[in-house]
């Protein structure tokens, strides 16, 4: 292969007339794909309190608490659970969503999760 000076120059000059490869974030945003792993969202109506998500979470970012317990006339016990989620610990692996037997947790497409206050990163679903 022969050596020639400025081998990259034609490419560089060509790009003077092309659109930039980057976008002006945050004014302009490129979307996230369908399966993006944002933050976990829990539906308390589906939760049965099995604690599988808590056991499997690698960063101990979840807590499941029993909110209420009611027995109806037929003697059927219905329990309600809430989930406390610490976004500052979450590693977005989606293991909680995968292990949940009732599919009560899903990952949303939020990616701008930064906050000035750590307290704002504690989310309770109930």
């Amino acid at each position: 292969m022969s050596l020639r000076l400025g081998a990259m120059l034609p490419e560089v000059l060509k790009h003077l007339f092309k659109k930039p490869a980057t976008v002006q974030y945050p004014f302009e945003k490129i979307g996230v794909p369908k399966g993006f792993r944002g933050r976990p969202v829990m539906d308390p109506n589906l939760c049965i309190g099995c604690q599988m998500c808590v056991k499997d979470c690698p960063s101990e970012a979840l807590e499941i608490h029993k909110e209420s317990e009611a027995t109806d006339e037929a003697g059927k016990v219905s329990k309600k659970f809430s989930m406390t989620f610490y976004l500052d610990r979450c590693s977005h692996c989606a293991q909680c969503a995968e292990i949940c037997p009732k599919k009560a947790i899903h990952m949303n497409s939020e990616f701008e999760d930064a906050a000035f206050d750590r307290g704002a990163l504690k989310i309770v679903y109930k």
């Binding site: 292969m1 022969s2 050596l3 020639r4 000076l5 400025g6 081998a7 990259m8």
Partner: peptide
Amino acid sequence: NIGASEPT
């Protein structure tokens, strides 16, 4: 190509 032909 660039890696093997750009003399600098």
